[in-house]
């Protein structure tokens, strides 16, 4: 995690330095223009649970993955607005029948979510920060030893935040590192994902 943060910091510093030297690889908003853009990001994710996830273990941290998609409208201002969705795997655990005497069969449990949020973001130079307000379709899946699969889904209020630094590939495409955070405070779930983000401005007017 420290290495990833260091890489992000180095990217930002090098880009700022490049800008000062007149380099044009950093993303600079086209002033006096509005635009629509799509961005996707993805990466591994570390999930932190406030409480243990089952009474069978003391585990509260898991590796998962995060994939986020946004469609954003950039008016002729620094603030842009849009919709955020995607997929996030918070945790998955497997238990043998010896782990769960009461069930006497193996079980695999998975907790995943699809965010659906209003996205608000701001850019300054190549740096971009985004807040997602709304919730998550939180889904829990039990896969039993007898091949029974049972899924339950609820809607849970939550927020997300993303911070990224984008480098221009060409006039419409840019790419850069992103840190993605999901927070479902009622469920006691915090997830942090270092991601790679790609952005495409598909309409400018």
């Amino acid at each position: 995690m420290k290495r990833i943060l260091l890489m992000i910091a180095l990217c930002i510093i090098s880009n700022v330095a490049a800008k000062a030297a007149g380099d044009t690889t950093a993303v600079v908003r086209h002033v006096q223009q509005s635009a629509l853009e799509i961005s996707i990001s993805g990466g591994p994710q570390r999930t932190f649970f406030r409480d243990v996830t089952t009474p069978l273990t003391d585990q509260r941290q898991f590796w998962g993955l995060s994939a986020t998609g946004k469609i954003m409208w950039h008016p002729d201002h620094i603030l842009s607005v849009g919709v955020l969705t995607g997929y996030t795997l918070f945790s998955t655990e497997s238990f043998t029948k010896d782990d769960i005497p009461v069930l006497n069969e193996p079980f695999q449990l998975t907790l995943e979510a699809v965010p659906l949020q209003l996205a608000l973001s701001m850019q300054s130079g190549g740096f971009e920060i985004n807040v997602g307000l709304g919730g998550y379709f939180l889904s829990s899946t039990f896969t039993g030893g007898n091949a029974v699969r049972q899924a339950n889904t609820i809607f849970e209020i939550g927020v997300s935040a993303q911070a990224s630094y984008m480098f221009s590939i060409d006039d419409a495409f840019s790419i850069g590192p992103e840190v993605n955070v999901h927070l479902l405070s009622n469920r006691g779930i915090l997830a942090v994902a270092p991601c790679l983000r790609a952005k495409w401005e598909f309409l400018r007017y």
Partner: peptide, 28 residues
């Protein structure tokens, strides 16, 4: 429904009537 107000356990979500007694005993 199972909520953090009443239970600890991340995987039992939604209606209590969706889960068997064994699942409740095992995971929450």
């Amino acid at each position: 429904t199972f909520t953090p107000r009443t239970v600890r356990g991340a995987y039992l979500i939604g209606d209590i009537s969706n889960y068997s007694l064994k699942q409740i005993r095992g995971f929450v």
